[in-house]
């Protein structure tokens, strides 16, 4: 269980609070108007946005002050998820060994992950030579070898076309199901919520609301969410 205990974030003229618990293995969608702080919330969980107050627990262990790399989560950003100067193999390898001293065992794991996402024949290529969908797949292969308990998505597939995006979301869903990881996903699209989320975290007017069951919330939205959905 990931517990957000009275989190408070204040940045210049922005502030938000969050107080909730997230269950491992569940899939959470974070929705809300632009500028409400969806990405900021994910950044705070990952350790990029400093907390003004509050504490963060993972399985009763406090991780508030842990380094981003030392937290039980992996994050996919809107862009720059791959290093353009490294090969696909190296990019995935960084998920296992940050110094890239890969053993034969590591390489086997990487090959398996690349095979799982359908990139076996692209191992030694640079990301620049791959299509947008293939680049997403490579990033997912790294998520797979990292095998962290939580996967955080900050709209990494936003630049893809609708069909490709659905394909990636389905693949993502399959992968977290295989590894048993929990998923926290920022999205703008109500159809994404219906497609994969169990629970919805609505971020609006300075507060991240506690998660609520996705279907019920989307079918029967409270006024503020109704206004956002239009």
């Amino acid at each position: 269980m990931l517990r957000l205990d009275q989190l408070k974030i204040r940045l210049e003229d922005f502030q938000m609070t969050a107080d909730m618990s997230l269950q491992k293995g569940r899939k959470y969608a974070v929705i809300g108007p632009s500028g409400a702080g969806k990405s900021t919330l994910l950044g705070a969980l990952c350790g990029f946005v400093p907390l003004t107050s509050g504490r963060l627990f993972w399985q009763d262990q406090e991780i508030t002050d842990h380094q981003p790399g030392g937290r039980p989560m992996t994050m996919l950003f809107q862009d720059n998820n791959l290093f353009p100067h490294l090969s696909v193999l190296q990019n995935v390898g960084l998920g296992i060994r940050p110094d890239l001293r890969l053993t034969d065992e590591d390489r086997t794991r990487i090959s398996k992950a690349l095979a799982r996402v359908g990139l076996s024949d692209q191992t030694n290529k640079k990301p620049g030579t791959l299509s947008g969908g293939q680049q997403s797949r490579a990033a997912l292969a790294r998520v797979l070898v990292q095998a962290r308990p939580w996967v955080l998505l900050d709209e990494p597939f936003a630049a893809l076309g609708p069909a490709l995006r659905n394909e990636m979301l389905d693949l993502m869903q399959d992968l977290v199901a295989e590894t048993g990881a929990g998923l926290v996903m920022v999205t703008h699209a109500p159809e994404d919520v219906r497609r994969i989320a169990d629970q919805v975290i609505f971020v609006g007017s300075g507060k991240a609301e506690a998660p609520q069951p996705a279907r019920e919330l989307m079918d029967n939205p409270p006024p503020e969410l109704q206004q956002y959905l239009g």
């Binding site: 990029f48 380094q67 950003f77 290093f83 940050p98 110094d99």
Partner: peptide, 20 residues
């Protein structure tokens, strides 16, 4: 562009210089 990605992967110190 790559600071956050490096940080989530725990790439720091010499490997950060060497690989990024």
């Amino acid at each position: 562009d790559y600071g956050r990605l490096s940080a989530t992967l725990g790439v720091q110190g010499w490997p950060l210089w060497r690989w990024v």
